[in-house]
Simulated scan of single mutants.
Amino acid sequence: MPRGYALDPAPTYARLRRERPVTQVALPSGQKAWLVTSYAHVRALVTDPRISSDHTHPNLPMLAPLRPEDIDTPHEPVNTLVGLDPPEHSAPRRSVIAEFTVRRIQEMRPRIQEIVDGCVDELIAAGPGSDLVSTVAVSVPSQVLSELLGVNPPDREFFHVRASKMLGRTTSPQERRTAMMELAIFINGLLIEKDREPTDDLLGRLIVNNRETKVFTHQGLLHMAYLLLVAGNETTANMISLGTTGLLENPHVLAELKADPSLIGRTVEELLRYFTISDVLVRVAKEDIEIEGATIRANDGVLLCLGSANRDETIFEDPDKLDIHRGTRHHMAFGYGIHQCLGQNLARAELEIVFTTLFARLPNLRLAKPLAELPFKFDSNTYGLHELPVQW
Rank of each mutant, 00 (worst) to 15 (best):
E292C: 15
P319F: 05
E269Q: 14
S278C: 03
N299Y: 00
D288M: 08
M332N: 10
P319G: 07
E249N: 09
A237F: 02
V284T: 12
P251T: 07
A298D: 08
L257H: 05
G243Y: 06
L306I: 01
M239V: 03
C305I: 00
I264Q: 10
I291D: 02
R273N: 03
N310A: 01
L257R: 10
R283K: 12
I289V: 15
G327I: 07
T236M: 14
C341T: 13
S262R: 09
Q344W: 08
K258H: 07
M239L: 15
I289N: 06
A255K: 14
L272S: 01
D279I: 11
D300G: 06
V282F: 00
A237K: 15
P251M: 02
T314W: 09
L247C: 07
I289T: 10
F334R: 15
L248P: 09
D320R: 13
H331M: 06
I264R: 09
R326M: 09
G337C: 14
E290A: 14
K258Q: 12
H339G: 11
D320Q: 14
T328R: 15
E249D: 11
L257V: 03
H331A: 07
K286H: 09
G307K: 06
R273K: 06
R266I: 00
G327H: 12
H331V: 04
D300V: 03
F334C: 12
M239A: 07
K286C: 01
D300S: 07
V253I: 13
L342C: 07
G265C: 02
G327Y: 08
S278N: 09
H339R: 14
A255Q: 12
I338A: 15
S278Q: 12
T236A: 15
V280F: 08
I277D: 03
I338V: 15
A333E: 11
I289Y: 08
L306A: 08
S278A: 15
V284F: 04
S278P: 00
I324A: 08
P319V: 01
R311V: 00
A237Y: 04
K258N: 08
L242M: 15
L254H: 06
D288Y: 11
F316A: 05
C305M: 04
M239I: 10
V280R: 12
H330L: 11
R266Y: 05
E249A: 14
L303I: 02
T295D: 04
G265W: 01
E317V: 14
S262P: 05
V284Q: 01
T314N: 12
A309N: 04
H325P: 08
L304Q: 03
S262V: 03
H252V: 04
N310L: 08
Q340L: 10
P319Q: 05
T245S: 11
D318C: 09
T244G: 10
